[in-house]
Design a binder for these strands. Structure first.
Lengths: 206, 206, 206, 206
DNA sequence: CATGAATGAGAATTCATTCAT
DNA sequence: AATGAATGAATTCTCATTCAT
């Protein structure tokens, strides 16, 4: 019970911090504003996090977990299995849409991590480690299925495919989610259709 | 002469600020560190910039100029003209390489602006205004040449082409320059080759 | 309790500020000196007053309250009633003595306000508003009683009487309290006697 | 010639300083603003005055001279002689009007001195010394003429007369010049008439 | 456990003064 | 003599952190 209450408070602080960090950046955020946003007293924060920097570390740790969820192979695997009979590009579209939704859901936290990473080596290290660990696997999943038709597709190697695919995917995600573009223009499904079609067409042998 | 001296100092401060902003982020950067980096007294900064925020605005203004240089149509135009007889994909590779070099050269400033933009509405506004103004024009240049062969290429419209192309290009640029990937793995020329080949192959009719 | 503590601190700061302002003037006073005088940390000041200027505003607000006390009609009224049978000049002497004591008690704050007013329009406005509101009333009290004997006194009008009376009264107060004169020369009661006698004699018909 | 130019510059600085001191107070005034007001470079000020405080001292010295002019007995003497046949109250009115004009002319400088005096002991000392030296003389001039008619006037002594007269006079001057009252209400001549009538009537034997 | 008043180190900013030109 | 760029000590103000209640 007591533990539950403590957990609740910590969660309120965490969410408030995340919100304020996302809005102002870590440095410009004040613990006072976080406390207000969380609806707790200023001192309460320091019962759950030793320092302000510690909150950021907490965010990172949470992010790592979210990242696992984000790069959640079970759901990707499930998509592949459930649509085994469909052509590869159709499957990929479903995967990308699934990824987009996961990304969008965790965008807040991603944004904070990506911005702060640059300035905090420890955060950077945690992130890169996590990335290396997962990134390859996502592509391997894709490649596994591409490799089967090696007569049909160009032989580009994982690295190159990875560059192209992730560039397109994340480039598009960021453009959409950062409000760089007018938001409502093209629905995400349509955009994925176009981008995957070009990608797939692009890697075809000719 | 006197003017020259003042300009020199302002430039020293500007460059120092850019460096410190890039290293620590705007909020975490201190004017003391900027002053030290610039090799001037703390007070000197405020002879040239009213406030710390004003330095960032100065960086933005400089960026806008760099951006003009970056989206420098003269050099693009020149590439196109000088290589008129070459196939479109070859020309595009040259353009992208040119863009990459311009981007790399101004990466420091671009990075600062792109990151800080999120937290400063005034900077964001200045940037978006500039982007809208230029972005379309770059693509138009490309399209002009693609349109000629409309039997050969898919009819995708400027918007879609723009999304795909800028996603790939900037996605790749950021991946390379942010040190997200091991830096030196593939030479940029090779990477551009691959990416443009896929893009071009991708937009072909079939 | 908690409220009491906060109020105490604010009061300590207020009194310290008043003292330092009176000694050095607003501009030359430093928040560091105020903090030391108040026996609090430098930062504590800014928990209670947003800015240094705000402390002055606080002093003004306090002054306005003191002013009410200063121009306290209840005590004037009481003097009048308690001495109803005495001649008017005797009553007036008592009133002026009462005023002098009130003025002397609040001299510190009055001095700060009167001096700083010149440089701060907002303070000036607050003050004038208060003055207009009260000044007339004091004179009306006096006039009420003078009017009865209109055969005896010159018909000078409130404005002129007000000028003469306040000039004499405040001129004398300032001379005494500013140490412009050797301080202890004539006792205040004697001085009031003389001044009121002349005033009263002066407004007699002849 | 060169000397003349230097004197001119010093005078420009002096007048600018006086203006800025009067507007902002000594502490809040900046040498930069004084320089701008004077139309000289910031550094130039320090060729004529060693420090900012030194400018204030310069103002004081000037004030002492002005004060001599202000308490200028030649002009008072002249008024008395020129109007020998007129009644005393008429003469006094002329004198007070003359004083008011002198005071108004030097009000700027008086204001600065009176405010700063409190915070600078050296200025205070110079001022008090000067005051003592002159004040009595003015009254003596008046008394000389009052004494003649000692049957007609009360025997009040120089001190008491001085208090009453200067209180009325300066009280009125300050009220007028500080903009405490609505400025245009009563013309100064009319106000002097009333105040002197009351004063004179007030000191009559009865 | 939670609070919020108090702290004080540190950051931004100001400004009198100096000095090379 | 005059200039105005540069200085840096002093000042206002901020905010993470502590601790008595």
């Amino acid at each position: 019970m007591a533990t539950k209450k403590g957990t609740d408070t910590k969660e309120k602080i965490f969410n408030a911090a995340l919100k304020v960090f996302a809005k102002k950046g870590f440095s410009a955020a004040t613990t006072a504003e976080i406390a207000e946003e969380a609806g707790v007293a200023q001192g309460t924060i320091f019962r759950y996090y030793k320092t302000k920097k510690d909150i950021l570390r907490g965010v990172m740790i949470e992010y790592v977990d979210k990242f696992d969820e984000f790069a959640d192979f079970d759901s990707i695997q499930k998509i592949i299995e459930d649509n085994a009979e469909k052509p590869l590009d159709e499957i990929l579209k479903l995967i990308v849409l699934n990824r987009y939704k996961a990304f969008k859901k965790n965008f807040h936290i991603s944004k904070v991590i990506h911005y702060e990473m640059q300035f905090h080596d420890d955060i950077m290290d945690m992130h890169l480690k996590k990335c290396k660990e997962k990134e390859g696997l996502v592509m391997k999943h894709i490649l596994q299925h591409i490799d089967i038709d090696e007569d049909k597709y160009k032989k580009l190697g994982q690295k190159s495919l990875s560059i192209i695919f992730t560039s397109m995917m994340f480039g598009m995600f960021f453009q959409r989610l950062n409000g760089v573009r007018g938001n409502d223009e093209i629905p995400i499904e349509k955009e994925i259709d176009i981008i995957i079609d070009v990608f797939f067409n692009g890697i075809l042998k000719r």
